[in-house]
Computed example of a mutant assay.
Amino acid sequence: MVCLRSFLEEHEGECVLFGDWNVVCEASERFGCVYNQEASSVFNSFIHDLGLVELPLEGRRFTWVNKTASKMSHLDHILTTNDYGPLLSKFFNSWLLNEEFDGVVRQGWSKDEELFFDKLKALKLKINTWAIERRRVANENKNLITGKIKEIDDKIDEMVVDENDLLERKDLCAQLDYIKKLEDMDMIQKSRIKWDVEGDENSKFFQALLKQKGQSMQSMSKFERDGNLVSPPTLSPTVTFSELENTWLEHSILEEEIREAVWDCGSSKASGPNDFSFSFIKDY
């Protein structure tokens, strides 16, 4: 850690440090283990003195567990020189259909901030705040519309409905269908994100079978061919590139190439479950 501190103090620029640090920040990150307060103080001073920010990890509370689960520790940490701001709860493509969203993005992309990460932080915060309010308003409108439709349906049952009521009911049903369409879009996106993150039981089962089969094939020292035991061939593939190919592989990536790679990605996809979708990136 001393060498790493010296390196960071001697060099400028942004960096991300991650891995198993074999140390915790506080006693609550240990269970069934001896807590070394001195080591934690050194690690916390390292983070504070260099102005680092620890990014939150998702998933289980502890990152190391012994075989009997009697000892557990949170030893993995991701440290960065930049605060990337709050994560989006999730970015839904249905937001792009909302007429207010463009104004939210323009307001959130602060002109006061000079650094890109600071702009992104302000934008995420603005979108999160708007999304919470939008969800509240949408639920209120849905309940209001549903209540009005029920009132008109009661009039229909009592045979006291007029033409204006029927026209209003048609308009209310169209509004309700649009709200449900947006909800369905969000549900589909949520299910895809969950499947991408967790997979499903079938895929895990077959992956385990393939892994077991691969291990058994690797452990096979000899096999039978024409009644004789022979050793499998030893494969040592080598790949060579010409000077021109090496030059092409090592050339600087152009902005046009990055744009082409992004535009080739599916619009409903994202670089992570809590990141902006490629549809948002393409629009803005």
Rank of each mutant, 00 (worst) to 15 (best):
C3T: 10
E9K: 12
E10P: 02
G13R: 03
V23C: 09
V24K: 04
R30L: 03
R30E: 07
Q37H: 10
Q37I: 04
A39N: 05
A39R: 07
A39T: 02
F46Y: 05
G59W: 05
F62R: 00
W64C: 08
I78T: 02
T81V: 11
D83L: 01
L88Y: 00
N93M: 07
L96F: 09
N98D: 15
F101K: 00
D102H: 12
V104D: 08
Q107K: 14
Q107M: 13
E114D: 11
F117D: 02
L125I: 05
I127V: 06
I132M: 07
N143M: 15
G147A: 15
G147F: 11
K148Q: 10
E151L: 06
I152M: 05
I152G: 04
I156W: 00
D157K: 15
E158P: 06
D162H: 04
D162T: 05
D165H: 02
D165N: 05
L166M: 04
R169F: 03
D171H: 12
Y178P: 04
K181S: 13
K181G: 06
L182R: 01
E183K: 14
M185E: 09
K190A: 03
S191G: 07
R192I: 10
I193H: 11
E201G: 06
Q207G: 09
L210C: 13
Q215A: 10
M217N: 11
M217G: 06
M220S: 12
F223N: 00
E224C: 08
R225N: 10
T238H: 06
T238K: 15
L244R: 08
S252G: 11
S252R: 15
I253H: 11
A261E: 14
V262W: 03
C265N: 09
S267C: 13
S267F: 03
K269A: 12
S271I: 06
S271D: 07
D275F: 01
F276R: 00
S279C: 10
S279A: 15
D283M: 13
